[in-house]
Amino acid sequence: MIALDTMLPAFDVNDASGRALKLTDFMGQSNVLIYFMRTSTCQVCVNHVRDLAKHKAELDAHGITVLVAIPEGAEAVARWQKKSASPFIGISAPSGSTHAEFGLNKKLFGSMQETGVVLADKTGRVRYTRGAVIATGAYNWQELYSAMTEHLPVAA
Rank of each mutant, 00 (worst) to 15 (best):
M1L: 15
I2K: 02
A3H: 13
L8S: 01
F11D: 04
V13Y: 06
N14E: 13
D15V: 10
D15R: 01
S17C: 10
R19D: 10
L21K: 08
T24I: 10
T24R: 12
D25E: 08
D25L: 07
M27G: 10
M27N: 12
G28Q: 14
Q29P: 03
Q29Y: 10
S30E: 09
V32K: 00
L33R: 05
Y35V: 05
R38I: 01
S40K: 02
C42W: 10
Q43L: 08
V44Q: 03
V44T: 14
V46R: 07
H48K: 03
H48P: 01
H48Y: 14
A53R: 01
K54P: 07
H55R: 06
K56E: 04
K56A: 03
L59F: 15
D60P: 10
A61T: 09
G63F: 15
G63S: 02
L67N: 00
L67H: 09
A69E: 00
I70D: 00
P71R: 05
P71A: 03
G73V: 02
G73M: 00
A74N: 11
A74P: 12
E75F: 11
A76Y: 13
W80H: 15
W80V: 05
K82H: 10
K82Q: 06
S84P: 11
S84I: 01
A85N: 09
A85L: 10
S86Q: 05
G90I: 05
I91C: 00
I91F: 11
S92G: 14
S92F: 13
A93M: 04
P94W: 09
S95T: 14
S95R: 14
T98S: 06
T98W: 03
H99N: 10
A100I: 14
E101G: 07
K106N: 09
K106L: 08
F109E: 14
F109C: 07
G110M: 09
Q113T: 01
Q113K: 05
G116C: 11
G116Y: 06
L119M: 03
T123S: 15
V126Q: 07
V126D: 01
Y128P: 00
Y128H: 13
Y128Q: 04
R130E: 13
G131A: 13
A132R: 09
A132F: 14
V133P: 11
V133D: 10
I134R: 11
I134K: 08
T136A: 12
G137D: 14
G137E: 12
N140F: 11
N140H: 12
N140K: 15
N140Y: 07
W141T: 02
Q142T: 15
Q142A: 14
E143S: 00
E143P: 04
S146V: 04
A147P: 12
M148D: 02
M148A: 05
H151I: 06
H151Y: 15
V154F: 11
A155H: 09
A155Q: 15
A155G: 08
A156Y: 14
